[in-house]
Nucleic acid binder design. Structure first.
Lengths: 227, 227
DNA sequence: TAGATGCTTCGATTAGGGTCGAACTATGAA
DNA sequence: TTCATAGTTCGACCCTAATCGAAGCATCTA
């Protein structure tokens, strides 16, 4: 009847509670096994298996077999982007899964969004990088300037290694809690893993919260002063 | 079980074919009545009414009563943004509702995305505005420069009037066909309606196609030269 | 007031899909 | 080879939600 892509099918895939739980869990960035995702979703392994094959069929996931384990992660940044958008809508219409608790505050401050830093600190980092001229918009794309290249290298990130990766280096991602952009792409990932490597930050394994050490937050504020 | 917004509920709302058809129709930007939407979705009026109250309850729609008619439009740009994102995913996974036909080509060239110009011409306009320095990124937000203000005023757009509106003036919106940004926000709307006012462009009432006149396309290319 | 039109509500039907138990396949360990 | 663990497939059950007819409410026209 109508032209254009079949939006209902994808949305229906995300629309089942069990599958939505799995996808939300995968927003943590870590690849998870079928059993782990079953646990997350609160269903049996058979059910989870069925859901995962549907999600995979819809192009939302990227499966990888390793021995007798099967790992799933989100297919790409676009998927993560849409999921964040949906979270924004859900949060906007005032529906939270649980009442706002202390954990939510932590989530708002710093959380992982499919591998990179999101929340207040995420947007602060993004704004600061722009303001310092390390990152500029080139039309629609984000571009790391010469000064930016020096900056990240100084921090101990291997740019040459990152560029080998076929995925985009810099990319903006909309934050559902902040309603502002933060940095995604392989550079976004690299930042977060560097913070972890320096022991500035640590991911909670079950929630998506990222907790910074006292020293870590100080170093962070030094590198990325608020605008 | 998990923290964060209830993504499944919103996604499930979009995930029903009838509702997805309605939302897609509303991406055209025009407010539509219950009966019109029922027609679009291919269901009876009762069914449509039920669907619409659910969508409204989920915060996706903005209803307005006018006499014995009830008009619905999308609640805001965020909703349109998520829908475009979903279309991108659906298109990416190779699912089109119908085989690609001649109408699709027209859709790719210029279509309406919830009120503003999308497609090739949309991204061309956006890139051109950036390149000419009429539009700049200010952190995460888009900003109309002094030269840009002169530019749009010259074109006959009343900026003072637009600013009275509470919604954002400039905003970027990701295009599912082009995978690039185009201009949304009240300025984006104003551009499109100005093009219509000047008889440069005309919207098809049933599809989302925007057709430019020969003169219109010439003026457009003059104002927004390709980069 | 009477009639027509647009929409909502109620109730009954029905189909699609989520769920899990049980059986089966595949990989790894001993 | 034998056992254990991870995941898939099959089949049956069951529940939600989409659907529409019929009746009711609201608004406009004459």
């Amino acid at each position: 009847m109508k032209e254009g892509p079949d939006i209902a099918h994808v949305a229906a895939l995300i629309g089942d509670p069990a599958r939505a739980n799995m996808l939300t869990a995968l927003m943590g960035g870590k690849a998870l096994t079928v059993s782990e995702l079953a646990e997350e979703a609160g269903v049996t392994i058979q059910t989870a298996s069925s859901h995962l094959s549907k999600l995979d069929g819809g192009g939302l996931l990227r499966p990888r077999k390793q021995g007798r384990h099967k790992y799933f992660s989100l297919a790409n940044d676009d998927v993560a982007h849409v999921l964040e958008g949906l979270m924004g809508l859900a949060a906007g219409s005032g529906r939270l899964r649980k009442r706002t608790g202390p954990k939510d505050a932590a989530l708002r401050q710093a959380r992982v969004c499919y591998n990179h830093l999101a929340g207040e600190l995420g947007t602060q980092m993004f704004d600061s990088l722009i303001m310092q001229g390390h990152l500029v918009f080139d039309g629609d794309d984000l571009h790391l300037t010469r000064s930016g290249q020096a900056f990240v290298t100084e921090l101990g990130i291997d740019l040459a290694e990152l560029r080998k990766n076929k995925s985009t280096l810099c990319r903006e991602c909309l934050d559902w809690s902040e309603r502002r952009s933060h940095l995604a792409g392989s550079l976004g990932r690299a930042f977060l893993s560097r913070f972890e490597g320096l022991s500035w930050a640590k991911r909670d394994q079950t929630t998506r919260v990222i907790s910074f050490s006292a020293n870590g937050i100080a170093e962070f504020k030094r590198l990325f002063p608020a605008v």
